[in-house]
Design a protein around this nucleic acid. Structure first.
Lengths: 338, 338
DNA sequence: CTGAAAGCGCTAACAT
DNA sequence: ATGTTAGCGCTTTCAG
């Protein structure tokens, strides 16, 4: 592994010039820049990250804090963020919080403090005040995705609006008895998301002159299994059952479709179902959904971080643009039975 | 952020002693060790990773190379590996290869060379010779999971045996016409896995005195959608259709079950289905499967790396123990119709 | 068991 | 535009 001085010698310049030529910081004449790059290429020189970090205080690495990995939303965000970081020459260090409380604490009190990351990306997580404080104490750029973190710029879809639009779709088809499978206010996910989606649902109903019926709401845990169980309860009484169900996630919506099948209900003839997510399986099951694009959310979060890390590198991406969510109509929704 | 000298001053020792006391390398009297630890705690001292890495050549960081993130198997391995690394005080830097060829190349030719990782964990990936060579050139411990990488110790289930056992389960129930939904030899995944699973299937049939019928084999892409399409073809002719299907992944098996439903075939009365994976959805759908445990595979791979990184830290985990795979019988398999 | 001191390989003033 | 040089904050010989 050749060092920077080997490159300097081969190119006939000083190490400082090599550093400047390769990093792009500081002025170097085009001619020498090329000479240096060629020398580096020839020797297979790659900068030593620890040495560079120690000297400059920059790591070219972003820490990403994730509650779970094996959930579609998170892994999709991660995929998008990872690709975007790679393009920018940044590494991605992953901190999973799925483990026990001790490990979780060590992430905030130890791992993130090692001067290993230039910034932090926090995916929908309900952080304790103390954890949030550790993050802010880092004095580094932070961007959140999903849940609102107090004091942290956050990228998030407008949950109220998305739920409203989903409900509106059902109302527009003529449905009047619309059930909802919502989120539980569990401590794992963000507190507000379930509440906001329910608010949007109720708002849409009221706009249509309908009073939300609490008996038509069932909480579940965002999984297929949970959605199935909730749907069984929602659909069990033929006389009182809704003609349409709005589920706060695609997986719950799929559980609902499967429950309907098992109850002998035809979707969409006897029951319409709509979800939120744009999950990869939604297409296969013909599920109408409000598609969000987690991969792009990850990319966009990275752009925000890059804007903070390299001010003026280009016009900063406008902050606070709401994330796009599109209604994708498939076969699971139709007018109610006559 | 206090430095090591602040701790040394407070504890009344030299920085060398602080380093030894905190890292565990070198001898320190119990008394001073405690004094140092207390001083560090009191000041909230955390070692600077770049400085430590530069001086020691160690990074306490592992690079993990992953082809895709949003696939159950990979994200589960990652979850397990991440937790195990955290427990060992290691960071996990993620290199996703889902992007374009350029980005993929930069991972091997640039990112991994920055002296940022002490070792590499490579998840089932078909690497080019050149890529493999870059890894080996790092002169660092490498462990693979899944696909066999030439020259790299690899953790892998015995695909032939697992497929044989799955097929045996069906044979044991009395099935004689057993179809298979296998993998395509795509370039994304490892080459051998699809072939090996098919071999095990054919081996089991021959052991039972049955000649494999090529018409009962259909390739697919390991997804629900692909499994569904393959199953439609496999099951379309009532007279020639198999009474049981072995799918090389749970997702394809689920696709098969859904296809059977759509064709009006009762599972398991008219069709038995078995998969491989132990996917989180298998339980919900009542799918019989050969469960592998990707999370534990991730943990075990980390143990192997730790054994190489810290020889003699404890008795090394025995290498080459085959990974456990268990038959989990659920409602999707039963004796064939009389 | 502990301390003194020489780097680890690079970057960023400061000069020129 | 380029060179000189003093660190960056730790670890690790080498002494004692």
């Amino acid at each position: 592994m050749p060092g920077i001085d080997a490159v300097a010698r081969l190119a006939g310049v000083s190490t400082a010039t090599v550093s400047r030529a390769l990093s792009g910081n500081g002025h170097v004449s085009p001619a020498t820049r090329i000479r240096v790059q060629e020398a580096a290429r020839q020797l297979g020189y790659v900068v030593s990250s620890p040495a560079s970090s120690l000297a400059s205080g920059r790591t070219k690495n972003i820490g990403v804090v994730v509650p779970f990995l094996n959930r579609w939303f998170y892994s999709s965000v991660l995929e998008g963020a990872g690709a975007a970081l790679l393009r920018n020459g940044y590494d991605l260090t992953l901190y999973g919080l799925a483990g026990g409380a001790d490990e979780r604490r060590s992430v905030f009190e130890h791992f993130l403090l090692r001067k290993r990351v230039d910034a932090v990306l926090a995916l929908t997580i309900e952080l304790t005040n103390r954890e949030l404080q550790s993050l802010l104490d880092l004095q580094k750029p932070i961007v959140g995705i999903g849940g609102p973190l107090v004091g942290v710029p956050t990228l998030s879809i407008d949950d109220v609006d998305v739920a409203r639009r989903a409900t509106d779709h059902l109302l527009g088809l003529g449905h009047r008895r619309i059930g909802m499978i919502g989120g539980e206010s569990g401590f794992e996910l963000d507190f507000h998301l379930p509440t906001n989606r329910r608010s949007g649902y109720e708002f849409a109903l009221r706009q249509a002159g309908l009073e939300p019926d609490p008996g038509l709401f069932r909480p579940a845990d965002f999984t297929i299994t949970g959605g199935y169980a909730a749907a069984r309860l929602l659909l069990e009484h033929p006389l009182t059952r809704p003609t349409a169900v709005f589920a706060a996630s695609d997986e719950m919506a799929l559980g609902c479709m499967l429950a309907a099948r098992d109850l002998g209900l035809n979707v969409p003839r006897e029951l319409s179902v709509i979800g939120i997510d744009g999950h990869e399986y939604a297409e296969f099951f013909g599920l109408t959904t409000m598609a969000q694009y987690p991969g792009r959310q990850g990319e966009q979060a990275v752009e925000m971080l890059m804007d903070q890390l390299h001010p003026g590198r280009r016009e900063a991406a406008p902050a606070n643009v709401p994330l796009p969510v599109e209604l994708v109509v498939r076969g699971s929704t139709a007018p109610p039975p006559a």
